[in-house]
């Protein structure tokens, strides 16, 4: 019986210690590296998707070079939007 009580208090102490530990050691260095790797593809992917959409629409309407150019730039804008959003999220995590 005494053993059990002893064990319970020790468990409690250990739990408290662990909670503090995880709270303190929440350095997000790994997360930052992940975010840094994220930004590049974020931009490229939107440009690629925009260009593909432009290409498909061009084939549909038969307006060969016009829509692909327009959608390339729209895709670029979407890419910038993605990057800005990711950067904003990073800042929010930082605080």
């Amino acid at each position: 019986m005494e053993d059990k009580e002893d064990f319970k208090t020790r468990l409690k102490i250990e739990k408290n210690r662990l909670e503090k530990l995880t709270f303190k050691s929440e350095n997000k260095k790994g997360l930052f590296l992940g975010n840094a790797l994220k930004l590049g593809t974020e931009l490229v992917a939107a440009v690629v998707v925009g260009t593909i959409i432009g290409f498909i629409l061009d084939n549909w309407f038969g307006t060969k070079p016009i829509l692909i150019i327009i959608f390339f730039f729209i895709g670029f804008a979407a890419g910038i939007l993605n990057v800005v959003r990711t950067a904003k999220n990073m800042q929010k995590d930082n605080k």
């Binding site: 994220k38 593809t41 895709g75 979407a78």
Partner: peptide, 20 residues
């Protein structure tokens, strides 16, 4: 214009996720 940009941004998610 913004809506088109948002849609492309949404559609680029699987591409960026897989390519990365």
């Amino acid at each position: 214009l913004i809506t088109i940009i948002e849609i492309i941004s949404y559609l680029s998610r699987p591409v960026s996720l897989s390519v990365r």
